[in-house]
């Protein structure tokens, strides 16, 4: 009980928002591919490339913005490879996605070795991290300032994007075409909508957001790159996308759940709970969430009784 009260504090809320941001960014990117009918399992790899090249760009240009540009570019390149294979060449999306994930893991490790001559992680004072934004007025009001102020720009961007992505998907022509492409491609094609182009566009947007998510990991709160830094967040995003269907509001809710699990596990770690157990928390949460959702949607075997049958059976007003 004592542990629980220590875990649930104002600073935990701030931590949740912080840890939610990268999953949210990458999942909102995945919302585009999901809606366009692509099962994009390559999010993890795109994020990892974003994280690595974010660090590289930040060192080379000496600015966090340069890092963002580099990271996003690298991730977009991954997205281009993905969509050329999947959309143009009609390769299996799971195979291509997995291959790119494995490639990203290997590439970042070997480049770390080749460029920095080290293994494991890149820690360097030349890496410029993201600035924190102190929202005027609110910043000094407690506890509001603690919750709403002091994040990096990407955190604010992530949450603002929930609304923006919703508008794009449901109120603009591009979004409509992307949705139709995923839902009923033959209908779209018969009306002259180029579904392949829509899928390429969706994949590119996804690449941008996945790259930003990666940059957030390496230049956000921890300013460094570590091997396999994305540590399954791309897969969590895939899980969120599967049960949200790419709907931005549901994506937000799903990501908050994972953000919570992430933040809580960090918290538990500082309290001396075994780190091996703690690292399992996000995945236990994801498996449980999937289980609960499918349990709720399981086909129900209904047995009617005579009482049901003598009463009006359906709202349509038919007696038996």
């Amino acid at each position: 009980m004592e542990i629980l009260t220590q875990v649930f504090t104002i600073s935990l809320i701030a931590a949740i928002l912080r840890t939610t941001a990268p999953i949210l960014l990458v999942a909102l990117g995945g919302a585009f591919t999901t809606k366009a009918g692509i099962f994009n399992i390559g999010l993890e790899g795109q994020m990892l490339m974003g994280a690595f090249f974010g660090v590289l760009g930040s060192m080379w240009t000496g600015s966090a913005l340069g890092g963002l540009v580099f990271g996003v570019t690298a991730s977009v390149l991954m997205a281009v490879i993905f969509s050329v294979f999947v959309v143009t060449l009609r390769a299996n999306e799971v195979v291509v996605g997995l291959a790119l994930n494995i490639m990203a893991g290997g590439l970042t490790i070997s480049l770390t070795k080749a460029i920095f001559g080290v293994r494991g992680s890149i820690v360097n004072p030349a890496i410029v991290g993201m600035p924190r934004i102190h929202v005027p007025l609110i910043h000094d009001i407690r506890p509001l300032g603690q919750i709403l102020s002091g994040y990096t720009p990407l955190v604010y961007t992530a949450f603002a994007l929930v609304f923006l992505v919703w508008v794009i998907l449901f109120r603009t022509r591009l979004g409509l075409y992307i949705r139709v492409t995923g839902e009923k491609p033959e209908a779209a094609q018969s009306l002259g909508i180029r579904t392949a182009r829509m899928q390429h566009i969706a994949s590119l947007i996804c690449g941008v957001l996945a790259g930003a998510a990666g940059v957030h990991l390496s230049l956000g709160y921890i300013v460094m790159f570590a091997e396999n830094m994305s540590s399954g967040r791309g897969f969590m995003a895939v899980a969120v996308l599967i049960f949200s269907g790419g709907d931005p509001v549901k994506v937000l809710l799903g990501c908050l759940l994972f953000g919570f699990a992430d933040a809580a596990s960090l918290r538990l770690q500082t309290m001396g709970v075994s780190s091996y157990l703690v690292l399992m928390v996000p995945f236990v949460v994801s498996v449980s969430a999937l289980f609960l959702l499918s349990w709720r949607q399981r086909p129900k075997i209904i047995r009617e009784t005579l009482q049901h049958l003598t009463a009006p059976v359906v709202a349509k007003g038919q007696g038996s």
Binding site: R179, V180, K184, A187
Partner: peptide
């Protein structure tokens, strides 16, 4: 060739919104 989740008007204007 209709899109089930869209409204009647959205379907009719699809491609020429």
């Amino acid at each position: 060739k209709l899109v089930p989740s869209l409204t009647v008007a959205e379907n009719i204007f699809l491609g020429m919104e």
